[in-house]
Design a protein around this nucleic acid. Structure first.
Length: 496
RNA sequence: CGGGGUGUAGCGCAGCCCGGUUAGCGCAUCUGCUUUGGGAGCAGAGGGUCGCAGGUUCGAAUCCUGCCACCCCGACCA
């Protein structure tokens, strides 16, 4: 009976069913919902507000490192798409294709495709924009003076995935994709490295989510890349989530699209390239990294509302007195650049509002009633720890300002502690399997460096090599499967 | 694409096996009164092409045939 009541008002607990917990949380916290189109979601205002905060910060970081935004078309002619062989192979199986450009009304009154309006050449809805961008860059780049070319675009892309999940994998998703061109290999690699560092900084400082930076193995590399760098985060169910990637493309795309430049010595050379991206999948990462059975837990830096104020009153006169006091407090919050909401709706009672803002992950909640007014106090509750305290109204804005910073750190530290507890070093394959089944999480183990072994491990355990961490210490060891020598440990996990 | 399942009010479901009043229930919505320091109570009201198209029948949400859509589990993926 109590369970039934719980499912009406609250959400399924993580222990009960992690995946259901996630789905219910996304819907009930008003972040997104499924649409009438398979695998495509509607991002609701509250969810979009979080995405906008992420976007705003990332955009700032890109611009600070010399990048500019531009916009390239949604449709890509099929012919462009087939120039870089390994790239096509990677995406061909999941492309939406436009074949006609007109509809008509059939005799029975239904709307049908007008077969006479067939396109000469089919258009591909972009699954990523390398091809259309590189065919444009060919026109933009002639001399070393045109380099480096540092461009980013914010866009939507479509990948016809078999199985989809809100934010984590949708058929259409929002992202940014950076595409840069350089005169030398070293510069392109430096760019690729710089961008993965920016992603890591964003993840850790803004999303409060610790990540491990590293290189992908050949098997897990982006289609058409020579090197893929990644940031990997650990979710609360012990699975890894690839949260951002940066690719060194070598001269593959330059050669495929014939993009050359004249260098200082007058020689014709192909340019060197990088591409990098993060998507609305970061929303999924943010949700799964911190949230609890009561709902969302948002790091203050990304919370659309940082402080909510709930009045507790019996009469209009009471509410007026509260409102006056609240105005004084919100003026101070405004000065400090803290976002807030005064929820004076008369249609819901305080308890309802408390639960609602916990579900939505608002970091700080203030409650103010006649009792507090009489004593010059205010009640403050923090979302991450549920700690509730009574404070004097005097100086509350300063206190909140510090508290938000403290919470940002506390949320990161909690996630970091969790990751450390869930990271295991193992030396034998038996131990590896045991940890995967009983503990889950990240596993650091020796690997012989071959795709065969990697494949075998994946088939037998479903775990993959998430990355070869940049900071992995040199260490003599033997591959846990084949016993061949290895000089560092790589990071394994089951992943999303 | 293989295996399983579901389509009935805005949402979640019952009814179907065994055909028969006016198709129910919970949540939500609307109105009124009382409430307001942890998801309010009572009273009343509105809301349906029963996924679509055929068929069987005096009669179909229920039986039959075909189609469509969606969900879950696998192989692929940010």
């Amino acid at each position: 009976m109590s369970n039934k009541k719980k499912s009406d008002k609250g959400i399924t607990s993580r222990a009960e069913d992690y995946s259901q917990w996630y789905n219910e949380l996304v819907v009930k916290a008003d972040l997104a919902e499924n649409s009438g189109v398979r695998g495509s979601m509607v991002i609701k205002p509250y969810g979009y507000a979080i995405w906008e905060k992420m976007k705003e910060q990332l955009d700032k970081m890109f611009k600070e490192t010399g990048h500019q935004n531009a916009y390239f078309p949604l449709f890509i002619p099929k012919s462009y798409f087939s120039k870089e062989a390994s790239h096509v192979e990677g995406f061909a199986k999941e492309c939406a294709v436009v074949t006609h450009y007109r509809l008509k009304t059939a005799e029975d009154g239904t709307i049908v495709v007008d077969e006479t309006a067939k396109l000469e050449e089919e258009l591909i809805v972009r699954p990523t924009s390398e091809t259309i961008i590189w065919s444009t860059y060919k026109k933009w780049i002639q001399s070393y003076r045109d380099l480096p070319l540092l461009i980013n675009q914010w866009a939507n892309v479509v990948r016809w995935e078999m199985r989809t999940r809100l934010f984590l994998r949708t058929a259409e998703f929002l992202w940014q994709e950076g595409h840069t061109a350089h005169a030398t290999s070293a510069e392109a690699i430096a760019e690729t490295t710089q961008m993965i560092n920016i992603y890591a900084e964003f993840a850790e400082k803004y999303m409060a989510m610790p990540v491990i930076k590293g290189s992908k193995t050949e098997k897990e590399r982006f289609a058409g890349a020579l090197e893929t760098f990644t940031i990997e985060a650990l979710m609360q169910d012990g699975k890894a989530l690839q949260s951002g990637t940066s690719h060194f493309l070598g001269q593959n795309f330059a050669k495929a699209f014939d993009v050359t430049f004249t260098d200082k010595t007058g020689k014709q050379e192909y340019v060197w390239a990088s591409s990098w991206g993060v998507s609305t999948r970061l929303m999924g990462a943010l949700i799964m990294a911190h949230s609890d059975d009561k709902g969302l837990v948002l790091p203050p830096k990304l919370a659309p509302i940082q402080v909510v104020i709930v009045p507790i009153y019996k009469s209009e006169e009471d509410l007026e007195k509260i409102r006056e006091l609240v105005n004084g407090i919100t003026d101070q919050l405004k000065e400090k650049g803290i976002s807030f909401k005064f929820d004076d709706r008369d249609t819901h009672r305080p308890g309802h509002k408390f639960a609602e803002y916990e579900l939505k992950g608002v970091p700080v909640r203030l409650a103010l009633g006649m009792r507090d007014i009489a004593n010059g106090n205010i009640e403050l509750a923090r979302r991450d720890t549920f700690e509730k305290k009574i404070f004097p109204q005097e100086g509350i804005a300063d206190y909140i300002d510090n508290l938000l910073k403290e919470m940002q750190e506390a949320i990161f530290n909690k996630a970091l502690k969790f990751r450390e507890e869930k990271t295991h070093k193992v030396d034998t394959y038996e131990e590896f399997k045991k940890v995967l089944n009983e503990e889950t999480g990240f596993i650091l183990a020796h690997w012989d460096g071959t795709s065969e072994t990697e494949e075998k491990i994946k088939n037998e355990t479903k775990a993959t090599i998430r990355c070869i961490p940049f900071d992995a210490p040199e260490e003599e060891g033997r591959c846990m499967v084949t016993g061949k020598p290895s000089n560092k440990r790589v990071l394994f996990a089951k992943s999303y």
